[in-house]
Design a protein around this nucleic acid. Structure first.
Lengths: 334, 334
DNA sequence: GGGGAGTGTCGAAGCGCTTCGATGACCGGC
DNA sequence: GCCGGTCATCGAAGCGCTTCGACACTCCCC
């Protein structure tokens, strides 16, 4: 079983056919009679054969591996990243591909290296910034790629993401429908906006647009992630706008602090202040009270990114932009 | 630059040497004169040559890729995992290896598959359980492996981890020195203990042993991760033991809730209750007040795991167990 | 000054797979 | 009963690299 490695030659001998026949059974690129196919497949699992990945890559010019490039930076929300990563791996396996993990340490050199050495066939980039230095490189590379998130200039690239503008808008619409006429958005830390991270900005834009459309009063603020800062921000907000009754929180690390701070400020949720979060479901469910939220559909985004990548690998053309619709889950906080 | 792929043959022609000479320059397995080496290296970067990973793997029987196996389960603290992962990638690159990401979805089949297909040379397993079904498989595989965490029966395996028993003990010692004579450990959710996760149990054992050694009163409780459960647990604890003045928290997701709950229960930190956490530094620093903590040295663990793996790949023998000493950082909460 | 003992380099044989062109066998139509 | 056309299979030529044995030099000691 786990003895010496079994080669295609041994399978061929065992099944009494030529090596090429075994190869064609495996790839399905030529017609093979049912009988022969059966015999070959039986030999394959009698011997426990697995094709040698390197040999296959060499002969076929396809490694059947994709690279997942994930920078790990401050302010990024790690659990979400991890769920993306997991979704990408699972999806890739469904297309018979494996996933090589690349981090930011090596920068663009890492991308160049694995592309040039034919270690991978294609790239999935996560946590894309508006002005991302990996983007020009990707443009000049022959290997196809899909970005999770949108850079400032996405022309000619394939990008997938949650439609954050719609998500921001949906939160406003929800609060407006519930009769709240003065609301606020607590967003990412200021540094994230400055870095130009797309999803933070687009949520804010969606929020601002929806506030206008629904004729409610709304203000968008960045929000640091320590309890003290959250408390201070909320205290100021509620002092200046005592009739504020709706809050949109788009900052996963701060949601817990927001609820604690409201508690300490003597505001009940949802009786005094309704809260909607944009965050993963598990965070929303674990909070108390459980939060009405727009979830970040990590699994769906990952799956879609891989699907698009496989289309491109097969030479098909795919749409530049894929925006996944937000979905609001009602819970106790509104 | 990013044109057709450059092969070793072209490098050899460009430098006016044999293909094998180029190979020896690259591998250093035979002596090459300084002049020839220079000429070859110059040609290599004049042409932008990168060895073809598949061809290399085929000829040398080494893929220069290691697999990182990380199950993604409930109760696991994801940001920590991610830091391990990142550390492993960085460390692997220093040994000129890349990292293939494997998740739990495929179970042991995935491990078997990538080993048999020679996609990877070795394995790093994360989040190892006391009774882990991947462990027997690893034992029968020819490829070396290193586990991050300890299974129940670690004989013959190479394992690396923070010394959690020492960490638990160190927290107790710290509180005891500060004069607290009645303390409690809030640990992982009950399900984590039931699953037999090693680090949770070992922390508890270290806590219990240290409590006895320091002659203080101490109780260890599992701790769920919702605010309401944390609140209820603490309320009960403080009602039954009003003179409880020290708390060890070994549950990253719950630390925030613990502090909120103490606030609501009218206990000041550290004046009424001193709190020590076992968690990553960033979590401890972001809490308010900042928590005295034993950090989980993810980078160090990842680096050490890879170092041991490379030793094994080179045929050297390494110690079975590597326990990294805990390090307590003093902050405002004690 | 002839015989080892290095040094530095080359050529060729694989590594395990895919793929192309060739070869039979078999079929129906005239 | 011969011809063109499928269908199923085979053999061989690579893919780009490593590695082994061979070879030609140089050096130095007796």
């Amino acid at each position: 079983m786990s003895g010496r490695t079994v080669t295609i030659t041994e399978v061929a001998r065992h099944a009494g056919v030529a090596v090429s026949t075994v190869s064609y059974v495996l790839s399905g690129k030529r017609t093979i009679s049912a009988g022969t196919r059966r015999r070959v497949l039986d030999s394959i699992d009698a011997l426990g054969y697995h094709p040698h990945a390197g040999a296959r890559a060499l002969a076929s010019k396809r490694a059947n591996v994709i690279a997942l490039v994930l920078p790990l930076r401050a302010g990024m929300h790690v659990p979400v990243l991890m769920r993306f990563a997991s979704a990408v791996v699972t999806a890739a396996r469904r297309y018979d591909h494996d996933v090589l993990l690349l981090t930011a340490d090596e920068g663009t050199d890492g991308i160049r290296r694995v592309a040039a050495s034919a270690l991978v066939d294609a790239f999935v980039l996560m946590d894309v910034e508006l002005d991302d230095n990996r983007v020009p490189l990707l443009r000049e590379l022959a290997e196809p790629s899909v970005l999770i998130g949108f850079p400032a200039e996405p022309a000619g690239l394939t990008c997938v993401d949650l439609d954050f503008a719609a998500a921001g808008g949906q939160c406003v619409a929800h609060l407006a429908e519930r009769g709240h006429s003065r609301i606020a958005l607590l967003g990412a830390p200021a540094v994230v906006y400055e870095r130009g991270t797309g999803f933070a900005r687009r949520t804010r834009e969606g929020f601002v647009a929806a506030v206008a459309a629904h004729r409610v009063a709304g203000v968008a603020l960045p929000c640091e992630e320590t309890f003290d800062e959250v408390y201070a921000t909320l205290a100021r907000l509620l002092r200046d706008q005592p009739d504020l009754s709706g809050l949109v929180v788009h900052n996963e690390a701060a949601v817990g602090h927001v609820l604690s701070a409201l508690r300490q400020l003597g505001r009940r949720v949802p009786a005094d202040v309704a809260v909607v979060a944009i965050c993963p479901d598990d965070v929303a469910e674990r909070a108390s009270p459980a939060l009405t939220s727009v979830l970040i559909p990590a699994e769906e985004v990952g799956r879609e990114a891989v699907r698009l990548l496989m289309e491109k690998l097969d030479g098909r053309t795919v749409p530049d932009a894929t925006l996944l619709a937000p979905h609001l889950a009602l819970r106790a906080s509104t």
